[in-house]
Design a protein around this nucleic acid. Sequence first.
DNA 1: TCAGCCGCATTTTTT
DNA 2: ATGCGGCTGA
Length: 747
Amino acid sequence: MNTDFLRDLNPAQLSAVKAVEGPELVLAGAGSGKTKVLTYRVAYLVSIGVPVHNILCLTFTNKAASEMKTRTEKLLGMEEHGDGRRFGSWIGTFHSLFGKILRMEADKLGYTPNYSIYDEEDSLKLIKQILRERNLSEEVFAPAGIRWQISRSKNNLVLPSQLEQSAKSRLDQVTAEVYAAYEERLKKSNSMDFDDLLIKPIVLFNRDRASLEKYQNKFRFILVDEYQDTNRAQYMLLKLLAEIHRNLCVVGDDAQSIYSWRGADLQNILDFQSDYPDAKVVRLEQNYRSTGKILKAANSVIVHNQRKLDKELWTENHEGDRLSVMECESDRDEGYKIVQRIRDESIKDKLQLKDFVVLFRTNSQSRSLEEAFNRGGIPYIIVGGVAFYKRKEIKDLLAYLKLIVNPQDDASFLRIVNFPARGIGDVTIDYVRSFASKEQKPLLAIVERVDEIVEIQPRQKNQLKQFARLVNKYNKLKDELSVGELSRSLTDELGLIRSLKDENTVESQNRMENIQEFLGGIAEFQTENPEGTLQDFLAEVSLVADVDRWDTKRNSVTLMTIHAAKGLEFPVVFVSGLEEGLFPLGSKEQDELEEERRLFYVAITRAQKKVYLSYARQRFRFGKLSYQAPSRFLAEIESDLLDQEHATRLSQQRTIWETTSTFDSLRPSLEGIGTMAQEVPRPRDVEKDRTAAPHIRIGTIVEHQFFGEGKVIEMSGKGDNERVVVLFGANQKKQLMVRYANLRIVR
DNA sequence: TCAGCCGCATTTTTT
DNA sequence: ATGCGGCTGA
């Protein structure tokens, strides 16, 4: 087969691609063509005759996986088949590919292929339940903390019994106990959590030699993206699978390791050479993405870290502009300045809005930024935040589908047994639950025998039976109907759309649209996977991240966390909130600080042409105003690479702010009080202010930036939660949060 | 026994 | 925005 495509590679890239046999470590700096090496390597393997199904290529996000698939196919001159499975490659995320293997080998672990995947919310609820059953207080034994501990234990391959042995405190003991119960319950529900998708294959491979050998022989060539982010379990999996053929090629950048909080172990990449002494090491140090100054800035930051491998990026690109530092009065001012700057730049440099990204350390920072974009009338997309698949209405519908596929799924059962409302409350459910745990049966199975529970009222019994009938009906139908038909018929039968329509509020409208979008998504899945079953669909949606849904085609500014931005690039990057305590966030422990620094490195290296770094002198955090010094990271950048924007414009801008906002002027008075705005006696000058909320009452005519004039017809909530329903025009009703909506009182 | 309403707290990063 | 606890009325 033709290997002409290799001519696109530089010498280092080429040697990385062609070293096909044996272990290989590719240290690929930011923007050095990491994905290119991986895709060319897969294409090269195929072109020299390696069957596609013998190649395993692992990534962390679906987005990365699908990009790799597309690019590989292009290199090989393959048409997209449109059947979703493409050319049968094993390119995918760790979680989805091992989830697939688990489905094929489920019986060997006492599972069935239709197992459910519990997300964090499901796990947390289960843990709370276990605590409640044991009369353990949630105040003393924080469920979230226990969940975190369990997850960490799993990732480190620590069993409940081992955790118990090493327990030092009562909390440790309880954690070990809950961990054991949690595992038991998951198994009984034929369910796995995210961690299990990596742990269970290890269990399988250790227990069943034949399975291990089967996959060792199948995956003769293994490629791993973002190796610096692998955890202990992933490391073990790779070690096991590569044992025979040893054709393990890992690509990564220790400087971009930003997931240690999730169990990723930087030591994996640092130790690769000692794990595989015969490993070929290739360094990709030429950067094709950024300007010289951006790269120098990034380098000057990362040298402050101790734990790192030797490597320095260089580029032939233009030197470019200096990085600009923007000092801002407040978080609000920061948003304003960023919006102004985007407006200026997009006109001046003929850039499109989608060329800009605003990055931040924590999701909570997005609120003040969003506000600024709304005021400035600049379209934006937020990646992250409340993810689509985490929305209540979507999760409810998904729970039905999950229970239909896996009748043992207790978490889904509990979620929907009384949704839509069937008059089944906590008391009834508790009876069902205790009977189920006595009988060691799934909840849905118990419902069929509800007559045996004397305490439950006839009305409730009836409702429960009807619920079970409904689920069972669709369980039988699932093989006859397509995924799309089934979901549509189910939503109809549940009357979801109808009842939301009747509710006729802005919220219900949104929910309805979300459900429609979800159904549309199912239809899309169906087109791409004509043979796809409901089980396949669930496997897919359970493992999507929000970044995966990020649509590059829309012409809007992107707002996202730095974590979400890894692997992406943008012409202009704003890094916001560069303040001590926020970025770097949290404690001063050396390892954690180094991770924050790597995060900053990732942020800067997303940029192709221009970087803006902003910080606010004061910022609202945890309901309080706080003052923070500029981030130490700013000082770590070589000063001649920086362009300190002067505060001259600042004073002018401040006056603009004060005429349009009460919020900022209220803030100083809040300091030290530690209360929310509404509890502070209102200063007299605010009385006159046009955004002052207390003046609004039913019947007030207000003006909104986008919707124009409208009449307040409903009010609810108090203080920060105060909401109004405003009727704009003839029939456009909007529910708005007074705090955010910035309504101007007309009369 | 349940539904609905209110007020309150919550926000580090996510497959 | 969401979930939870507390309260009330049916």
